[in-house]
Design a protein around this nucleic acid. Structure first.
Lengths: 196, 196
DNA sequence: CGCAGATGTTAGTCATTATTAACGTTACCG
DNA sequence: CGGTAACGTTAATAATGACTAACATCTGCG
């Protein structure tokens, strides 16, 4: 009855659709709280159809987190090299992170909750990308606030991530643009306060 | 063989022990990623022994989250009423939250991840306590920074929670006292930057 | 002593769930 | 046309896991 033209569809669009749906579900109920059947249902197919696109549930999660880590890291890195000075570099990092957090809250949520469920080959790669991303921030901050110990800057970076990623918890309190400006201002001030 | 004196034990100490172990496990692997068997194993008994202390897995989680919400809310409320002015009240709130986050990272983690798995009678109570706690912050902030819209202050409060609760992610980067001071300074600055 | 209560244990039970198997269908390509 | 690749479907299968039942044990108290 409902005949959707299958092969006219964009190549790989199905994979993306599944990843999106899974991200929402994982964010809402946690990796183990979501069944393959749930994910299938969310994209209109039922259950085992997923195995035509992913080798398993863990592989799906792995790909999702790997993609997020890569996007954050590479877009951050690119914008930093384009920046004229440390001040602008920090602005670029803040923009990237805020834009991502506001437009993909589910991905952000899953990204910092579910690493523990990623199996080992991929886990290491994701960790490495996360570490590199943090180091981008620390490098910029070191240049901007010289003389402050790296350990403190690293902790401050994590704290700012926590601040920026709070977005999913305050869903809809403010319009996105206002939220973005609020977060940027708070993050900048928090980082500047890094030294007592 | 290994005979531990059972009834000489502190009354209710077993419950607390179980709650502690469960908090660690839930924080590490998520509610659905932990089995009753796992929790039992973590306290030296095996599996169904838990049902002597809790009516089920969900009840265990409910009690855990209810307790956290209550402790945050009531200790915050008490210290706020003791404060001489809004400035001191904010300091008190910051102290409570930071102390709690640093000393019970697992509880903090579970508290803001697993509300969705709490069944309905308790869910509502926890939500109410959380809302009240946020309102304590917003009230103090309104007094401290008059003229700023409540919606912005609410969003800022959530953002500061995210900042302070980042503790589990930067485990051991800094000694606790230094971490506490760093977080306090960053949070204060972030809140002060609430207005553009 | 002998019972009560608190706390465990092991062996079911029953549902859920990831994954695989076996089997269509549809569209394009030679 | 005929075949093949992409994509789905509905049954198994096999494991896991929450919860219950039936059965100890041990302490303290009358």
């Amino acid at each position: 009855m409902t005949t959707v033209q299958p092969s006219t569809r964009n190549r790989g669009s199905r994979r993306a659709e599944i990843l999106d749906a899974a991200a929402e579900l994982f964010a809402a109920r946690g990796f183990h709280g979501v069944s393959i059947e749930d994910i299938g249902g969310a994209v209109g197919t039922s259950g085992p159809a997923l195995y035509r696109h992913f080798s398993g549930k863990e592989a799906l999660l792995s790909e999702m987190l790997l993609d997020v880590s890569e996007r954050l890291h590479t877009s951050g890195a690119r914008r930093v090299t384009e920046a004229a000075d440390a001040e602008q570099a920090l602005d670029a990092l803040l923009s990237c992170q805020i834009e991502f957090a506001l437009s993909h809250p589910a991905l952000i949520t899953v990204h910092d909750r579910e690493l523990g469920n990623v199996p080992e080959p991929a886990r290491r790669r994701i960790r490495r990308l996360q570490r590199l991303y943090v180091e981008e921030w620390v490098t910029v901050l070191s240049e901007l606030y010289p003389g402050r110990p790296q350990a403190g800057l690293r902790a401050a970076t994590h704290a700012v991530f926590g601040l920026l990623n709070s977005t999913p918890h305050s869903a809809g309190e403010l319009p996105p643009a206002a939220m973005a400006e609020l977060l940027r201002g708070m993050a900048r001030a928090a980082l500047a306060a890094t030294q007592g």
